[in-house]
Design a protein around this nucleic acid. Structure first.
Lengths: 188, 188
DNA sequence: ACCTGAACACCGTTCAAGT
DNA sequence: ACCTGAACACCGTTCAAGT
């Protein structure tokens, strides 16, 4: 797995330390205070000047995307694995459940970013998730296990919608039941 | 129809005028700038001191709920009508479509409030919508047109999730297609 | 190169003073 | 009763000065 760390190239040691520290603190802050958590406080808690935070993450969205990156890499990897699974329909269902789980793991940050950050649609993360979803979906449709009149973006919208609707009452059971209902609706 | 105006009792004329003016401006502001629109600017554009805004609407949520109130009254009324419609399943579907339409009419404010304001669940508006949904749902379930293992809050969560996922690309066609898929999933 | 923190503009919220 | 707007605290963002 390629982590954000290994992607850093030739940074000074202190810069790298700061980068990681900001990321760690940001993860906590977003979980506690939501997607609008104070950047100033994140910098403070990371023991870093605000300017340093802005240097590493020029926009709030950049920081949010960085926080989400690990989970997204994992989901992409999981999608690749699932492309070899025996039942294409079940593989898709499993991956969508993983999406839901990931959304709840980061306390709804993912879903919130998708819904309220216009930049999301043009981000690499979005393209990556859409590509994974499209591959799994195409296979399930080719196998006749999923109706053909739905596309990958719609599918992701639905899952994130379910996640969003539960971000303030993170009832995993209920969320998974809604996903099950949605999956029933996906049958041809 | 009972409007918010007729609910005001014995206010001074200028107070009432201010109340209405703030509401009008807030509606525009939320549509333009989203649910976090500046309260200060709303007051300014309404030609009113900030204190006056706070007097009428002690919290941001109070103002948001007031902006949404008319649409909610309409939906509640529509639900009452639809309880007499011939097909219980179709009546439910129609009402859910109206929910979606209402969400897009106020530029996603409704869905955003539902998702990001913890106060929502305890609000009268929420109880009202849940009651309407429950009545239509119960009838559809009794008629055997909708599966019995879903409840009204889940149903509303799903619809608002769909609306939320589209608030930054308000593609009505796509949203309605997702709703149709969800409705398919609701069949017994 | 990278970091710091002061500086500026802006917003949320309260409250003393006004009518 | 209701309104106003100044006052305070806080945050986002930039940028000159430092290492």
């Amino acid at each position: 797995m390629v982590t954000s760390t290994t992607l850093q190239r030739a940074k000074r040691a202190d810069a790298l330390r700061n980068y990681e520290q900001i990321l760690t603190v940001a993860k906590e802050a977003f979980a506690e205070d939501g997607p609008d958590a104070s950047l100033e406080e994140i910098a403070r808690r990371a023991g870093v000047g605000v300017g340093t935070l802005y240097r590493h993450f020029p926009t709030r969205f950049a920081l949010q995307e960085a926080v989400l990156r690990d989970g997204i890499e994992e989901l992409a990897a999981k999608a690749d694995e699932l492309l070899d699974a025996p039942s294409p329909g079940e593989a898709l269902a499993q991956w969508l459940r993983a999406q839901l789980l990931n959304d709840s793991r980061n306390h709804g940050l993912g879903a919130a970013v998708v819904a309220s950050m216009p930049e999301w649609n043009n981000s690499g993360s979005c393209q990556r998730m859409t590509a994974s979803a499209a591959a799994l979906l195409a296979r399930a449709q080719a196998a006749g296990e999923v109706r053909s009149d739905i596309d990958a973006p719609s599918l992701l919208h639905l899952v994130h919608g379910i996640a969003l609707a539960h971000q303030h009452a993170p009832d995993t059971v209920r969320a998974e039941k809604l996903l099950a209902i949605m999956l029933d609706g996906l049958r041809p």
